[in-house]
Design a binder for these strands. Sequence first.
DNA 1: TGAAGTGACCGTAACGGTTCAGAACCAATT
DNA 2: AATTGGTTCTGAACCGTTACGGTCACTTCA
Lengths: 367, 367
Amino acid sequence: MARSMHVRRPATLASLAAELGVSRTTVSNAYNRPDQLSPELRRRVLETARRLGYPGPDPVARSLRTRKAGAVGLLLTENLSYAFRDPAAIGFLEGLALACEDAGTGLLLVPANPEREDVAAVHRAGVDGFVVYSVPDDDPHLAAVLERPVPTVVCDQPDLGNVDRVGIDDQAAMNSLARHLIALGHRRIGVVCMRLARDRNDGYVTQERQRSAHFHVQRARLAGLAEAFGEVGVDWAGVPVVERFDHTITSGASAAAQVLDRDPQITALICTSDILALGALGEARKRGLNVPHDLTITGFDGIREAEQAGLTTVRQPVLEKGRAAGKLLLDSAERTRPRSVTLTTELVVGATAASPRGVVEERWFGP
Amino acid sequence: MARSMHVRRPATLASLAAELGVSRTTVSNAYNRPDQLSPELRRRVLETARRLGYPGPDPVARSLRTRKAGAVGLLLTENLSYAFRDPAAIGFLEGLALACEDAGTGLLLVPANPEREDVAAVHRAGVDGFVVYSVPDDDPHLAAVLERPVPTVVCDQPDLGNVDRVGIDDQAAMNSLARHLIALGHRRIGVVCMRLARDRNDGYVTQERQRSAHFHVQRARLAGLAEAFGEVGVDWAGVPVVERFDHTITSGASAAAQVLDRDPQITALICTSDILALGALGEARKRGLNVPHDLTITGFDGIREAEQAGLTTVRQPVLEKGRAAGKLLLDSAERTRPRSVTLTTELVVGATAASPRGVVEERWFGP
DNA sequence: TGAAGTGACCGTAACGGTTCAGAACCAATT
DNA sequence: AATTGGTTCTGAACCGTTACGGTCACTTCA
């Protein structure tokens, strides 16, 4: 019975067919199209498969032939593990996972180490499409993805023209937050932002660096601030903007410290993310500053931790963003021309923003 | 120059070779072994590739030939998106992602809907190995994974004998927590646990169901409790054990309510996860119970939220667990026989456990 | 009784690469 | 002049499937 004990080679569809004396097609059909063969033969095929230890059609070979991988790739700018530490990223992932789940598709996290310029992982990924989440617009990984002949959806990215996009209007959202602060009477402000480019620059940001920032989201948020404060006569060039490469609470604290050390007279510290704002809150507390009365602090994202802290911020629908990205990618049928989805945001008025001391809120003077 | 404008078919390695008048081998080498051809020819190959829009070797075809997918699969019992909602699962994911990152490997989240018994996704996954995280031991997805001829690591699973395993000693950990409560003087206890099997059973758990629970982790934790309390003469059969299918704070609250309604005289409520315990804490607060003096509540896992709440619990190294699983899987070289990694846990004495009213802590009587 | 229809199965040709054992060539050594 | 060694490139086999367009025996129906 056990013919050739030395078969190290695992069984294949062909060997199974040979053993059974049928064609490979038939064996394939036994797995993929049961209606194409008699129940009796199918039973025999499956039983012989079990006996020979044939685990069913090889997924990779099948993918090659059918030109479907059954998975979408996710490209993140950060270390893969980072995605699981940032609440906003987690929310995005959850939404994306939901969309994939609905479609029965796998989700492949592509290891794109931002340090090394090793794009090989992008080339090696056997996927039917890519979602690119918040990477700098000059990221070589992004370029590698765009070269791959598969549909792609970018998130938090400027409109690339030829691929689908999902995001929010960062500039408008930040603008409305700024207007809120302006209405409260703030004119002397400081800004803490996330990394603006691939190089580390933990410190003050020049005008030029702001304009040429490679992270679209950050660039747009700063632009929204500049726009709003410019309108009320604030000289943007004089506004201290401090950047941090690492997106952590600790970074937020140290950045806040840096701003407060040099410009203690500011009445509001605007952070471009909740995480940074939480750090700033901690730093303010450490300095004995009363938030919001001594110092207004705001964030961006609307993560749960921010809500608990009562942070004044902008809420963006991160989960929806992920889900929208997934949906866009997964029904890529009939994509005539690139689609663009812009989700709405919401100003969250918390307890960390108030009129500066000695200033009565402006709207009281309204007509 | 542009020969045949109607080439809908994208360029392949072969077409590129033909265009250049070289062999396919040479083109392949241009990408994979630059030292195998002259720099000049390589330059020509790459340039022609760009001109023809050839995106480089197809990952799937390459995988087929090299028998490497460059990714590991992760199988979760829950809906994919759930993994991003449970802090413990997130920690595990982070650790696993770290390990994958180090190895330059992708991480494929396999959509294993626990509702449907659709195992196809497991068959379709093009991966070099699987990590299986906390699924019931009779899960068909698990069976499907074990049939695949690739290395596998199971987590929070009984020793399957033939695959690598990583986990903690749930029984011992819970036993030590129980001893702590016993030392405090607790004898009348209630238990809230996570789902014990694939079927929903929101309510009391029979002895039989406890013993035959398909979630190893839960079974072991209950066993640890039964063991410890049995030693001091508590009749385990009389201990109310309530199960919840959904692992949410809300579930924890409702389960706690169910126990407290029927057995208001209990002095301690032991939950098999922090999430459930947090729910129980809320329920206790709602009832005006003073924790820990009116009621002791404990958890399991050691998530951050539990720490903030001052929960008495068992901390397990979830991140390390993920990382260990990844490492085990990724250096599957020379695996002689299945390895088993058991990580250590730590009893976290928080503020939610104390001696019941009228009872002096036992250790005060110590020799 | 012959034409048409149906169910069951098969042969061939991809799918797009990688790999390995050489071939061809040339320069340097014996 | 023959041998050696090195570089550069090639041919053919192979990876394990599935898509496509059949064939063939066996009804069914007029």
